[in-house]
Amino acid sequence: MIEVSHVTKDFVMPKKYPGLRGAIKGLFSNEKTVKRAVDDISFQIGQGEIVGYIGSNGAGKSTTIKIMTGILSPSDGTCFVAGIDPNRRRKENAQNIGVVFGQRTQLWWDLPLSESFTILKEIYNVSDQAYREQMEFLNQVLELSAFFDKPVRTLSLGQRMRADLGAALLHNPKVLYLDEPTIGLDLVVKDNIRRAIREINEKYKTTVVLTTHDIGDIEELCSRIIIIDEGKKIYDGSLEALKDTYGTKRTLSLEVKQIQKASGFSPAEILGVREEECITELDFENSLLKITFDGHKLQAPQILSTVMNEIEITDIQLKETELAEIVKEIYRHGTEGE
C-alpha cells in the first residue's frame, strides 16, 4: 500500500546568529544551513496494517508523514501510496488518504460541525448514499451526534479530535495518517479514539500510520512499529520482537519480613551468573528486595526458590520492562551513537 524507498528530505534555512549583533549580521549574510530532517528512509506497509511510527521530538516523523501525504516533496528517493506518487499527483492521492494532525484541525472553525461534513462531502465527491452509510457508522463509533450542530470553535478538545477523525474518514480512505491523534486527551477519550481506529481498521481494512508519543496508543493498536531517530530508521519490526530484543529485563519485587537478613545476600553468586545479569537492590524503608534479571538467562521461579531458602517472604510482584522504558532506552542509544 505504501512504498517508501530511500527518501531524504533536506531543509535549507538561512543561517541565524545569536543576539542583536547576530540579527544584524543575518541581514547581510547569505549563508544557508542545510538540515537533514529525513535521512534515507525506506519501508513498505501492506494493506490493513496499523503501523506505529515513533521517534523523539524532531526526529522527522511529521516530515515523513508530510511526504507521504504529498504536502512536501522529498529531496531524494521515491514514495508511492496506493501506486500514486503523492508529490506528483497530489490531488489524486488526496482522494485516497485521510489525515489527522492532532495539533491542527481541518474543520471549518466558524461553522457548525455538520456544515464541515457537508463541505467535505462535496470536496471528496461522496455520493448521498455513501455519505449516509458512512455517517451512520461514524456516529456509532465516534458518537458525533451529541455535538453535530455546534460550531467547531465551541467543541472540547476531545470532541474536536473525534470530529477531526470522522472528517478524515468521511470519504473512506485507503490510508489513514494520524499524527498524534491522542495528544492532550483524557483517558476515556483516548480509549474511545483507539477503539474507533481499531473498528475502522477491521471494517474497511484501512491502512493506518500512526505517530505518537503515547506508548498506550502503540501497545493497544500497533502490530508493527518503526522507530526513527535524527531522520534515520533505527528499528522496524513487530512489537513483540522489540520487547524480546530490548525488554528482556524483568524485575522481581519481594517484600520480606526482616530486611536486615537480606543485606549481603547475592542470588547472582548462588546461581552462578554474572553480577549485571542479576542485580539486587535493597529498599530498607519498605522492606523490599528488588532483583532485576535477564529474562533470557534466568527464570523467575529459580530466583524465587533461591531467595526463599534464605529469607521469609510476605509478598511477590513480577514486573516486565515497560515499552516506555524500552523506547526511552532506544532514543538514548540513538543519540549516543552519534
Binding site: T69, I71, A94, Q95, F101, R104, T105, Q106, I123
Partner: peptide, 13 residues
C-alpha cells in the same frame, strides 16, 4: 499558521 497543510491534504487546487 501552517494551515496551508490542511488545504494540501484535500483533493482540491
Amino acid at each position: 499558521q501552517g494551515t496551508v497543510a490542511m488545504n494540501l491534504i484535500k483533493p482540491i487546487d
